[in-house]
């Protein structure tokens, strides 16, 4: 089996995201399935601009998984999103 490329995950820790729940996502080592964790490359990054897109229905915290930006991300949702992303 060829080595799969890791999913690149950026957790926004701009002040707004950090304050609205993004900080909790930084505990990913504790709440993510180790198998999923192994398939991802996760980092905390400065504002990824999710909040600045006008008319956006989403709210902080934002997370970028690969190319796509997701809003309203909580621990549970991140587990689900990453499980899907690593399976794909």
């Amino acid at each position: 089996m060829g080595k799969k490329e890791k999913v690149h995950v950026q957790i926004c820790v701009g002040t707004a995201c950090f304050v609205q729940g993004g900080a909790d996502l930084l505990l990913y080592n504790e709440f993510l399935d180790p198998a999923v964790l192994g398939g991802c490359e996760i980092e905390g990054v400065s504002c990824i601009g999710g909040c600045k897109e006008a008319q956006s229905k989403d709210r902080p915290p934002y997370v970028r998984i690969g190319e796509k930006v997701y809003g309203n991300v909580n621990q549970e949702m991140l587990c689900k999103l990453l499980a899907e992303a690593t399976r794909a």
Partner: peptide
Amino acid sequence: LASLFIAKGIDVRE
């Protein structure tokens, strides 16, 4: 203080 930072657009990490 966090809301003050957000309102002023101050990104601590930057």
